[in-house]
Amino acid sequence: MKTPRQIKTPLTDEVITSLNAGDMVLLSGQIYTARDVAHRRLYEALDKGDALPIDLKTAVIFYAAPTPTPPGRIIGSVGPTTSYRMDAFTPRLIESGLRGMIGKGDRSQEVKAAIKKYKAVYFGAIGGIAALTSQCIRKVELVAYEELGPEAIRKITIVDMPLIVVNDVRGNDIYYTARNRWRVKC
């Protein structure tokens, strides 16, 4: 297996176009956490032309809601939630500048098309290893929608978060290709 490639946010067009589905990467820099309700609110704000609480330009969103932070720690456990629930809102966010998404599971055709058209990338993280993943996080800052509790938008600083490129700008999908490769044909 190849050594994972280290990449940093903000993700440039050059880095994004060089990523291929199946690439292992270690992502560092600042990203946002946002999931179901936060997505709806961002989407509605865009619709109304309201100011967004975060700058979507070049942003990377991690579909996650951590456990509460115990004393003496930076964050509790954190890991990806299933991405398809954000599909209805995602193309609009990508169109407005969103460059990267971190989650788990398949995306819709609309999301994949937006990834291609606007040069974005969807990374997969391993679900259910949240104690391990939390070790990549160096700083957490509450940014918006505090009343949503775990679902609030947080800006987190990560170092070497292990991810796999799921959907790239060329329309490739690692879930699809890997599944076909390992399927036992009857």
């Binding site: 996650a64 456990t67 509790g76 890991g79 290893i129």
Partner: peptide
């Protein structure tokens, strides 16, 4: 991850 969670008394999953 299960081992880290157990040793640090952290939830296995968020």
């Amino acid at each position: 991850n299960a081992d880290i969670a157990f040793r640090n008394k952290l939830p296995v999953c968020q």
